[in-house]
Structure formats: C-alpha cells, structure tokens
Amino acid sequence: MRVAVCQLNTRDNRATNLVTAGELLKQAAAAGADLAVLPEYVDYLGPAAGVPKPEPVDGEFAAFFATAARTLGMWVLAGSFHEAGPDAERTYNTSLVFDRDGELAATYRKIHLYDVEIPGRVSYQESKTVAPGTEPVVVEIDGARVGLSICYDLRFPELYRRLAVEGRAEVLVVPAAFMMHTGRDHWEVLLRARAIENQCYVVAAGQIGDHDPGRTCFGRSMVIDPWGTVLAQAPDTTGVVVADIDLDRLATIRQELPSLANRRL
C-alpha cells in the first residue's frame, strides 16, 4: 500500500484551505497513493472568532472530502475538523476516514487534549472549547489495520499500545499541528518511538509554518517503518511525500524481534 502525507499551512480562510487540500490530494493520487493523510484542522487554523460553525460528520466538510476520495479513487483521512460536540460550548476534534467510493469508513474523536502553559511561549487550553473523545479506533484499509490518533495523542504511549494489541493495528496515523518549540525536539523522536515500541508503520501529516494568532507549526511530515527508519520526510514547505508500506516486512520484524509477543504487562 502506498501512503501519502499532505503537509499544509492552513490559515483563516476555509475556502482557500480546502482548495489547497484538494490540490494536494490530486498530487497524492497522481503519485499512486492508496491512502492520503491530511493534518489536524485541515480546513481552518486561525483566530477563534473565525472558526467555522461546528458540523456533524455528514456536513459540508465531510461532503468535500468524500467527493475527493470518490473522484480520485483513493482512501482519504481528512485530518481533523470541528465536529458539533456534546454541548453549546465545546466541539469535538474529529478525524474522518473515507474509502475509495467516498463512504465514511471511520470516525475518531481526539482523546487527549492539549492543555499546556509554558510561560513566555504558549498558553493553550484545548479542553475549554473541545470535548475529549473516549474510544480508540482501528479501521481496515486495503487489508491493513490502521489505528487512528490526533496530534497531542502522540505523547501517550498507552493509546498506541492499545491500538497495536487490542486493535491489532499495523499502521498508526497521526494528523497534527505540532508546535514549533516542542516539535523541533520531540516530533520525530516520539513518532519513531511509537513505531519501534509497537512494531507498526507510522504515517504523520503535520501543519507547517505560521498561523494566526502567533502560532507556528513544525511540519516535517513523515512515514516511518516498524524498525524506526524514516522512509519519507516532507521538506519545510507545503507539499506531498509518499512511501510504500510493506506488511511482509512488518511481519518479519515482529517475528525476528517479538517484543509485542514477549510483553509481560
């Protein structure tokens, strides 16, 4: 299976962002991708006052990416968007997966919310406006079991172990908007760790560059194999990179170094 990570600089104009996302999906399809992964909040990343009205999973956001998946004949993981939440004050941060026919195959709501205070650098309380999801999700894509996550989830290894063991995941996906000040030190390290410890491929699509108000995302979208080797990495610009997932290689690694089978806890 060939996977593509699409790296965007999403801003505060939803229509423009969706056009850009659509163009990157076309590039991914032209490169032979079976699955394309877009970043967190692919449709809008900007001032809170301009956030699009929250939608259900069958709203305009979903319709746009369902049409793209069907038109291109490709699986699409549509990053994430503001799904209508449990109350008037909070949304969900939600990923949708569409199959080659444009049918909704999976929905995942971000479990771990980014509540961080770093004096002089960042003050962000995602839980003020976003409700946490509760359920890990694995979806089968062209014979590969794919575990879903979003951005800050990456710092919680117990989620990925559950995806790998209980969900029998072989691929882990991470749409993200990872901040520059943490991304430059932690992004690749954490992604490679999740790949190695769970003996899974990791497919991570990130936002890149500046986003109002005063937010800069790290980018460096990448695909990593179960040995922890980076197979493909995006340069520091908007674009698409692709890599091939080889489930036979995954099986060999799990057989020769059976750390998942040897676990005691």
Score class of each variant (00 low, 15 high):
residue 174 V to G: 00
residue 137 V to D: 01
residue 41 Y to W: 12
residue 141 I to N: 02
residue 38 L to G: 08
residue 46 G to Q: 06
residue 154 L to V: 12
residue 228 G to K: 06
residue 265 L to I: 13
residue 70 R to N: 11
residue 96 L to T: 03
residue 181 H to N: 11
residue 263 R to Q: 13
residue 52 P to Q: 07
residue 160 Y to M: 11
residue 7 Q to C: 05
residue 243 A to S: 09
residue 159 L to N: 03
residue 9 N to P: 00
residue 176 A to S: 15
residue 179 M to L: 15
residue 74 M to Y: 01
residue 244 D to E: 15
residue 47 P to C: 08
residue 21 A to N: 04
residue 25 L to V: 06
residue 219 G to Y: 08
residue 202 V to M: 02
residue 214 G to N: 15
residue 178 F to M: 12
residue 258 P to Q: 09
residue 10 T to H: 06
residue 127 S to D: 02
residue 49 A to T: 12
residue 184 R to K: 14
residue 166 E to N: 12
residue 40 E to D: 14
residue 143 G to I: 00
residue 186 H to W: 10
residue 259 S to C: 09
residue 190 L to T: 08
residue 181 H to E: 14
residue 113 L to D: 06
residue 44 Y to N: 07
residue 185 D to N: 09
residue 26 K to D: 13
residue 194 R to D: 04
residue 31 A to W: 03
residue 48 A to C: 00
residue 29 A to P: 00
residue 53 K to T: 15
residue 31 A to Q: 15
residue 126 E to F: 05
residue 199 Q to R: 13
residue 101 D to Y: 02
residue 35 L to G: 03
residue 14 R to M: 14
residue 203 V to K: 05
residue 50 G to Y: 05
residue 116 V to C: 04
residue 237 T to N: 10
residue 240 V to C: 07
residue 210 D to N: 10
residue 241 V to E: 10
residue 56 P to L: 11
